[in-house]
Design a protein around this nucleic acid. Sequence first.
DNA 1: TGAACATATGAACATCTGTTCATTCGTTAT
DNA 2: ATAACGAATGAACAGATGTTCATATGTTCA
Lengths: 115, 115
Amino acid sequence: MDESTEYLRAHQEQVAKVKEALPQDEVLYDLAELFKIFGDSTRVKLLYILSLGEMCVYDLAQLLGVTQSAVSHQLRALKASKLVRYRREGKTVFYALADGHVKTIMAQGLEHVEE
Amino acid sequence: MDESTEYLRAHQEQVAKVKEALPQDEVLYDLAELFKIFGDSTRVKLLYILSLGEMCVYDLAQLLGVTQSAVSHQLRALKASKLVRYRREGKTVFYALADGHVKTIMAQGLEHVEE
DNA sequence: TGAACATATGAACATCTGTTCATTCGTTAT
DNA sequence: ATAACGAATGAACAGATGTTCATATGTTCA
C-alpha cells in the first residue's frame, strides 16, 4: 500500500466517523430554517425590541420605520418559528418573546459581532 | 385629556424609551448579517462538521454531497464572517472553526429546534 | 348597523442567494 | 517544464425572499 492510498484511507475513515456523528439531515435543515429567521435586520430588530418587553404592532412599525403590513408579515414568520407569542386586547395585538432562547442566541451573536 | 389621548401618550413614551435602549442600527444590521450565514443548510452542516474537528475541502464536499465549488463558495462566506480559519498543507486546505461562539450559538439553536 | 381603527393576508415585483459550469490559481512530483 | 491534483473564482441562471399596495378580518363604539 503506497502513501497516497494510506492517505486516502485515512480520509475515508475520518469522513465515515464524522458521518456517524452528524445529526439527522432534517435537524440541521430545521436549524438552518431557524437561523434564517434571525438573518434579516427587520426581524432581528423586532426580536431585540420584544426582548425588552411586549409591544403592539402599530408601535413596532413606528419604531422600525416600516409599513404595518411589513411588520405583520414578519411577525407571522416569527410566530411560525415559535419565537414570539401574542395576546389580543381589544383591537390591539401585543407581541412578546416566546421563550428565553432568543435572548441567549442574540447575546452570543452580539458578542461575536462586537469583537 | 380624554382616554384615547392618554393611551396614545403612553404609547409614545414607551416607544421613545425603547428607541433609547436600542443598539445602533449598524450593530443590529451586522447581527442579522451574521445570522444570515447560519441560515443555510449547507453552511450549517459545514459549521457542525467543523465543530467536530478540522477537515479539508474535498472531504467536506464529499460529506455534504455537493460540488467542491459549492463548498468553496460557502467556506468563503464563512471566512468573511470570521467563523472559520484555515491552514494550507501542500495542495490541501484544512478548515476549522475560528472560535467558540459558533458552538454556543448552534447549541442554543438546536435546543430551540428540538423542543 | 355602520364607521373607525388595528391587524392580517394575498398578489406582484424587484432584489438577493446558492448552485453549477468553466476556468484559473497554487502546489507537488515526475 | 509539465502533468496532476486540490482549491478558489467568476459568470449565469433558477429559485427564494422582503417589501409594497390593495383588500380583508376582527373589534369597538356611537
